[in-house]
Simulated scan of single mutants.
Amino acid sequence: MNRFDGRVAVVTGGADGIGAAVVRGLHAEGAAVVIADVQHGAGTTLAEKLGPRAVFVRTDVSNDDDVAAAVDSAVDSFGRLDIMFNNAGVMGVLGPIDRTPLAEVDATIAVNLRGVICGCKHAARIMKPQGSGVIISTSSPGGMLGGVGPHVYSATKAAVIGLTNSVAAELRPYGIRVNTIVPGAVVSQMTATVVADGDLAGAEAALGASALIDRALQPTDVAAGVLYLASDAAAYVTGVTLPVDAGMTGVFGSSPYTSGRYEDPVTLLEAGRTRTAG
């Protein structure tokens, strides 16, 4: 397929993990892509592998000027901006709330929330005059459920959802769609640091063992959701939060009402009275 022929994207955090999978997916389907990341080596290598329709721009998303430069690079290099994927993020400060250092709180917020605000801001200044565009931002189950992410990370990811919906309401009249993607625990270097002391293979094994479906979530699974939201197939989709998490945020457990004592249908009526169904 060539869903993105002639289109131009900026992907923050595009040098590895989910971001790199999205960069590769967009590029494979015809898009030109700006890889915006602080990881110079990985970003440059990826751009060189992809060829002339990909450029790397070193980007600290907490720095407004850096994000502006990444967006301007898309316009200068390829003439326009059609897709902005605000993906860069960090796990940030971990630990108990009563011992959380505020300097690290501010640093986490700067990347995970300020960075998304900057991405929306600079994408909008290009897309509004065009009258078209798609902005997608990465949240997390931690932004929807308690206990599945660190405190400040969870707060920022909840804020991304609120920000996205607010910006979607503003930009809809300009033909710009704004959505959120919510990946589950994906096999990536950041996740590996948390669950397997940095060992990627160990992380895949650990995540696979606890997966709600039959294998660990891969960056390409998340990329498929992002590419759908970015495509014309989602032309009527805005202000949406799309989980790619095997149902973690919506159907966390298996239903107890279809197995065990309820394997054969029964109807439960008033005051606990039952009636055999069927």
Results as ranks from 00 to 15, higher is better:
Arg3Pro: 01
Val8Cys: 08
Val10Asp: 03
Val11Ser: 05
Thr12Ser: 13
Ala15Ser: 15
Ala15Tyr: 05
Asp16Arg: 11
Ala20Asp: 04
Val22Cys: 03
Val23Asp: 01
Val23Lys: 01
Arg24Ser: 07
Gly25Trp: 04
Leu26Phe: 11
His27Cys: 05
Gly30Glu: 04
Ala31Cys: 08
Ala32Phe: 03
Val34His: 00
Ile35Asn: 05
Asp37Trp: 07
Val38Met: 13
Val38Gly: 09
Ala42Phe: 01
Gly43Leu: 07
Thr44Arg: 08
Ala47Phe: 05
Glu48Leu: 11
Gly51Arg: 12
Pro52Arg: 14
Ala54Arg: 06
Val55Glu: 10
Phe56Ala: 01
Phe56Pro: 02
Val57Arg: 13
Arg58Leu: 00
Val61Pro: 06
Val61Tyr: 04
Ser62Tyr: 05
Asn63Asp: 14
Asp64Thr: 13
Asp65Leu: 14
Ala70His: 07
Ala74Gln: 07
Ala74Ser: 06
Ser77Pro: 00
Leu81Glu: 02
Leu81Ile: 03
Ile83Gly: 03
Asn87Met: 10
Gly89Gln: 10
Gly89Cys: 10
Val93Asp: 06
Gly95Ser: 11
Pro96Trp: 11
Thr100Ile: 12
Pro101His: 05
Leu102Tyr: 10
Asp106Tyr: 00
Thr108Met: 07
Thr108Tyr: 06
Ile117His: 11
His122Met: 12
Lys128Trp: 00
Pro129Tyr: 07
Val134Gln: 02
Val134Met: 01
Ile136Gly: 07
Pro141Val: 10
Gly142Val: 08
Leu145Thr: 02
Val148Gln: 04
Gly149Arg: 01
Ala155Asp: 06
Ala155Leu: 15
Ala159His: 11
Ile161Leu: 12
Leu163Tyr: 15
Thr164Lys: 05
Val167Ser: 03
Ala169Thr: 13
Glu170Thr: 07
Glu170Pro: 00
Leu171Pro: 02
Arg172Ile: 14
Tyr174Ser: 14
Arg177Asn: 10
Val178Gln: 01
Thr180Ser: 13
Val182Thr: 11
Val187Gln: 03
Met190Lys: 08
Val195Lys: 05
Ala196Pro: 07
Ala196Cys: 12
Gly198Asp: 12
Leu200Tyr: 13
Ala201Cys: 02
Gly208Ser: 14
Gly208Asn: 10
Ala211Asn: 13
Asp214Lys: 15
Asp214Asn: 15
Asp214Gly: 15
Ala224His: 12
Gly225Lys: 06
Tyr228Arg: 08
Ala233Glu: 15
Ala233Ser: 10
Ala233Tyr: 06
Ala234Glu: 01
Ala235Trp: 11
Val237Ala: 15
Thr241Gly: 06
Val244His: 08
Met248Cys: 05
Val251Arg: 15
Phe252Ile: 12
Ser254Asp: 13
Pro256Leu: 03
Pro256Gly: 04
Pro256Ala: 02
Gly260Asn: 07
Arg261Leu: 08
Glu263Lys: 15
Pro265Trp: 07
Thr274Tyr: 00
Arg275Tyr: 00
Ala277Val: 06
